[in-house]
Simulated scan of single mutants.
Amino acid sequence: MRLNIDVTMEYQLEDPMVFLTIEAADTDGQIVIDQQLDVQNATLSWVDGEEGLGQRVWARVGGEVMRLHYRALVDVTRSDIPLAGLQAAARETLPGSVITFLRPSRFCQSDLFTSFVDRQFGYLDGGDKIAAIRDWVADEMTYVPGSSHAGTTVLDTFAAREGVCRDYAHMVCALARAADIPARYAAVYGLGVTPPDFHAVAQVWLDGAWHLVDSTRMCTPEDLVVIAVGRDACDIAFMETGAFANMVAQDVSVIAVPEG
């Protein structure tokens, strides 16, 4: 599937230095055909993303307002592999880069969910367990825009049973880690995200590879474009600043286009 991504952002800044995580990554399952980032009156510099996936951008804006336009054309080549039947790896066989995603993190206190996961999903293994976790999160939670904030943790989400894509992804990550299955948070663009916005999903390590899991049920792996990955939202916010930034306008568009 070929996806056209178009993002415009306008923010009032108190700090001219902005760290952006919005460019599609050239990584397994997707090919960036073309992309362009324009930030008015700004000096840009690129750094490699976490886990060597994609790039992130420092923008020094020459003024109090950041106006940004990002465009990309991406071929998504991954298929929607069923989770059922995929095998989880023993801890001692995991690559070093994967082990970190078994541990609790700032927003995903997975160590506090071990007993719950044992009771709720203990009869399942590997991909079957992840599929059950995905479905439990989808069924138990309600998608409510504005119901969470930048400081909301998975403990808050578990109690409230509502949130946005960020909270759904945190819930899957926490429960998967509690089940001893590595899971990481992925910032993505998704076809069909409602309302249109930056999106977030989980990735789980099964059968020696990372698999995308969207418990909001808005997207499948075939219509997601990965931007960056991390332990949780703290690692890969789409924009970071050293002081307050006020959104004036923001629009994220993802549409499917004919190939060729």
Rank of each mutant, 00 (worst) to 15 (best):
S115E: 15
Y11T: 01
Y189M: 03
R166N: 08
D180K: 01
I181M: 09
R106T: 08
D28G: 14
A249N: 15
N4L: 09
A42M: 05
I99Y: 08
T21I: 05
S110M: 10
V57R: 05
A160Q: 12
R166F: 06
A174G: 11
A138E: 04
L53S: 04
V164F: 09
D167N: 04
H69D: 07
L94I: 05
V225C: 01
G85P: 14
L155P: 01
G127W: 01
L102H: 12
A88G: 15
F198A: 04
S45N: 12
A187W: 05
G146S: 09
A176D: 03
F244H: 13
A176V: 13
L212I: 00
S148R: 14
I33E: 14
T142I: 04
N41I: 00
R56N: 10
A183R: 09
L86M: 15
M17D: 14
G242A: 13
D118L: 01
Q87E: 15
V98Q: 01
I5W: 09
F121I: 02
M141H: 12
P16Q: 11
C219A: 15
P104R: 03
L37G: 10
V18Y: 04
G163W: 13
E222H: 05
R78K: 00
A24I: 12
T93M: 07
D111H: 14
E50Q: 14
P258Q: 05
T216G: 10
F198L: 07
S105M: 08
L83A: 13
G96Q: 07
E259V: 13
L20W: 08
M17V: 14
V201E: 10
D118E: 08
D232F: 00
A132W: 03
A176Y: 07
A25C: 06
A209D: 15
A187I: 01
D80G: 13
V47F: 04
R78I: 01
Y70S: 06
L37C: 09
P258M: 01
D26K: 11
R103A: 03
P82N: 09
V252I: 02
W210Y: 14
T153P: 08
G163L: 14
E222D: 13
Q120V: 02
D232Q: 02
C234E: 13
M239A: 15
Y185D: 12
A90S: 04
L175P: 07
E240Y: 06
L224Q: 07
T157R: 05
G96W: 02
I31Y: 15
P82M: 12
V252Q: 00
H170E: 00
I133Y: 11
T157P: 03
D111A: 13
Q12F: 13
F121W: 11
T216Y: 12
P145M: 06
S147I: 13
V57A: 02
Y189V: 00
M1Q: 02
W205T: 04
T8L: 02
A200V: 01
H149R: 04
H211C: 01
E140G: 00
E14Q: 15
M247P: 04
M141R: 08
P196S: 03
V137Q: 03
V257A: 14
D80E: 15
V154I: 06
L112I: 06
L94G: 06
Q35D: 14
A150N: 14
H199G: 05
S110L: 05
N41W: 04
D48L: 07
S215H: 07
